[in-house]
Amino acid sequence: MSSDQDAKLISLAKQALDEDVSELGEDIHLRLAAARRAAVAEMDRPVLFLKGPWLTTAPAAAGMPATAMAATAMAASLVLAVGIWSMRSTVPELPVYGGEDAQLAAQNMDLLSDMEFVAWLVMEEEPNAG
């Protein structure tokens, strides 16, 4: 096929496509124009990096991109979470008895033994009392 025929084919294709576009309804034109205006209006709107009382704003073309800001915040949160988790996951210390505590415990045991002995002695002597 010659290049002339290809050129004619391409010309016909363009014509067909242009006709399709020219047949778009008025509502489509209006919606496209509205979408365009909304997009163009975005150009002058400052980009919000974060929401909240610590809100910072900057023009779209300058400063740290929102995605980088979000990534940094996420990394900080992760570090914080790992820190808290590691603190909570440590084994709690068991009470160690020693020193005065140990002495007191031993004395209590001795006293208990003495009291049992005295009680037994009293029981043994009662039949002989009369």
């Binding site: 496509l17 399709d20 576009v21 778009l24 496209l32 124009a33 365009r36 163009v40 150009m43």
Partner: peptide, 20 residues
């Protein structure tokens, strides 16, 4: 301005883009 240039660009491609 940048906004005017963008508006001109988008108005030039919007119908074809929609059809595509």
């Amino acid at each position: 301005s940048d906004a005017a240039a963008m508006n001109r660009f988008l108005s030039g491609v919007e119908k074809k883009a929609f059809h595509i």
